[in-house]
Design a protein around this nucleic acid. Sequence first.
DNA 1: CGACACACCTGGATGC
DNA 2: TGCATCCAGGTGTGTC
Length: 270
Amino acid sequence: MPELPEVETTRRGLTPHLVGKHITEVRVRDARLRWPVPDDYAALMRGARIDAIERRAKYLLWHSAAGTSIVHLGMSGSLRVISPEIAPRKHDHIEWQLDSGMVVRLHDPRRFGCVLWAADADSHTLIKNLGPEPLGNEFHGDWLFERSRGRKQAIKTFIMDAKQVVGVGNIYASEALFRAGILPTRAAGRVSRARYEGLAAAIRSVLSDAISAGGTTLRDFLNDSGEPGYFKQSLSVYGRAEEACKVCGQAVRTKVIGQRSSFYCTTCQR
DNA sequence: CGACACACCTGGATGC
DNA sequence: TGCATCCAGGTGTGTC
């Protein structure tokens, strides 16, 4: 169920179990992910010691001396650390055996995720052209303002474009625009510098709030519930069509923008 | 280049 | 209960 906060929560949950450990075996039960798991993936990973797990956009980068495994959870993926005695479930496609005795399993019913290998992750085609991290220093209102000049596309589509800023998914795009008071349909090129400053702050705050909320599930990382970390009750507009706006009471509107459901309040957003 | 539609895939909810 | 339909949190690719 991964938006950026869930991926970051996964990274934090995985780190103590994986960093410093060796991969003793990899079992690929179903290689048919978004791109096939490379034929030599298991051979490349076997024996590797994981030095660090980094998150770039929604990609998890498992760094080792020989190279990096690039893991994406797609729409429906999740990773768990579990005892190997527990039988794999349906859609548990890949399993990494660790020298600690535990296994990491990738569960992904829709198979939109990927598991790849790169000798140098920074130069990989999936990674090299990504925009700034929303929680990093290069991301701010001026960046969005400059990048958006002359653009007619809806601002919601604009902030979901990974070349502008990574990690803003469909839920948090609606939430950030609500916090910033900007209608999602507004042309990106017709938003002022000052309002972009507010939007950048809203994107940062909505994502970091969700990461903090996700943190409460960290202790459950080894359990099999695997529930998403964000709290539905903390969402202001997403998934609340026809319900009362939490600020003004007006019915929350919904509209498809760029083929994605979008939620907003016409009183609070202009 | 920019903007947009489409593709991939399974399963859960809803409606008849 | 069964079956058809719609919808879902991502994002690379192809087309105009």
